[in-house]
Design a protein around this nucleic acid. Structure first.
Lengths: 185, 185
DNA sequence: CAGGTGATTTGACATTTGTCAAATAATAAT
DNA sequence: ATTATTATTTGACAAATGTCAAATCACCTG
C-alpha cells in the first residue's frame, strides 16, 4: 500500500511517516471519473493503489495524453505540479480505481518541517527527472515502432486496459501510425 | 559569482553556505579543454562562471550534444549525474572558461547533513525537471524551425559562440536541416 | 598570399510520420 | 437480435526531416 511504496523511495522516521501519511487524501472512484477537472486550482501528486488513470490536456484542440498510470504507481502532471501550467489538465480514471493524493502545498509544508520528507521529495523528483530524460531520449532517437515495443516491454498488459487512441497520444504518434505499427508484426 | 547564483535558487544559513562553497572546486581552462573525459568515474555538477561549454556523448558512433552552457549557468549531464549512464560523456569548453564543480558524493553528503542544502538540491533538480519537460515538449510538438527560433530567443548570441554542428545536434536535427532552416529567413 | 583543412551550404532522393477520408470491426443500447 | 455509437484499420497523398554526395566558403598556417 501507500506506506510501503513510500518506503521504497526513502526511509522516514516514525514521526515523519505519521505526519506524511495524514496529509494524503483517499478516493475510491468509478471508471471514467475525472479526478482533476480543467481549471482546478489545487494540484495533487497521486498514488494509484489499484486501477488505471491517465493525465491529459488539450493542445490546439487536441487531447494530449501526458501520462498513463497503472496499479501502485505514483503519478502527477509534472508541468502542472511544479510549474502550474498548463493548468487545463485532466486526470481521468480508465477503470474503477483507488487513488491517494497529496496537495502541492501540503507536501511543501511537510518538506520544510521534516528533513527526511524533504529528502523523500527530492528522490521522487529525481525519479521523475530520470523518467523524463528517458522519455525524451526515446522520443528523440527511437522510431515510433521502437517506442511501442519499449512500452509493451514495460507494461505488457497496458494494451488490454487502455484504448489505443490514448496509447498513441502517450507515445507521441497518431492513432493511424500506431495501428500500422501493430499490424506490421 | 557562484554564491550569488546559489542564493538565487534557495537561501542557505551562513553555516551551510560556508560548508557548501568549500565543496566546490575551481578550474580555469583554455578553449577546447575536456573537463570530463570518457570513462571518468566522478561526476560533477558544474557552474560556468564565464565561457562556454558543451556536454556530449557518443551514440552509435555519432556525437550527441546533450547540453550547451554559457556564462553563469549551472549545468550537468542529468543522465550521468543521477543515473550514472551513459558514463561515456564528455564535457568540452568551447571558449577559455572559468568553471566550478561539485562532485555527486560531496553534494549528497552535504544534503544529508544540512536540511537547507537538501532543499537547495531539491530545487535544483526541480529546475532541471522543468527544463527537461520543456525540452521534451519542444522536441515532441515543435518543428525544427520553431525549435531553432526558440533557441535564438533564449540565447541570441549562441550562434556567434558555438559551431552550427553542435547546435544542430543540441536541437536534435542534422547539420543540413539546420542550414536549410537558417537560409530560409 | 597560396594551399589546405574544416565548416557550411546545396542538391537529389529516401524514409518516416501525419492528414484526411472512408471502410470495417467492436461494443453498447434499445 | 438490431441499431447506433465508438474504436480501429486501411488507402492515397503530403510534409518534414534524414542521408549521401558534392560544392562553396572561411579561416589558419607556412
Amino acid at each position: 500500500m501507500l506506506q510501503k511504496a513510500i518506503l521504497k523511495i526513502s526511509s522516514l522516521s516514525p514521526q515523519s511517516m505519521i505526519s506524511f501519511l495524514a496529509a494524503w487524501k483517499y478516493w475510491s472512484v468509478p471508471k471514467d471519473h475525472l479526478l482533476v477537472r480543467e481549471q482546478t486550482v489545487s494540484d495533487y501528486l497521486y498514488f494509484i493503489q489499484k486501477g488505471a488513470a491517465r493525465i491529459y490536456y488539450y493542445k490546439n484542440g487536441k487531447e494530449i495524453t501526458e501520462w498513463i498510470a497503472l496499479d501502485e504507481q505514483f503519478f502527477l502532471s509534472i508541468t502542472s505540479y511544479f510549474q502550474r501550467t498548463p493548468s487545463h489538465l485532466i486526470i481521468q480514471t480508465l477503470e474503477p480505481s483507488e487513488v491517494y493524493g497529496i496537495s502541492y502545498n501540503d507536501f511543501m509544508a511537510l518538506a520544510d518541517r521534516h528533513h527526511d520528507i524533504e529528502k523523500l521529495l527530492r528522490k521522487m523528483i529525481t525519479a521523475s527527472l530520470i523518467l523524463s530524460q528517458e522519455r525524451m531520449d526515446s522520443i528523440q532517437f527511437e522510431t515510433a515502432h521502437q517506442r511501442y515495443d519499449r512500452l509493451l516491454k514495460t507494461s505488457p498488459n497496458i494494451i488490454q486496459r487502455v484504448p489505443l487512441s490514448y496509447i498513441a497520444s502517450f507515445l507521441g504518434i497518431t492513432l493511424e501510425t500506431l495501428s500500422r505499427i501493430r499490424s506490421s508484426r
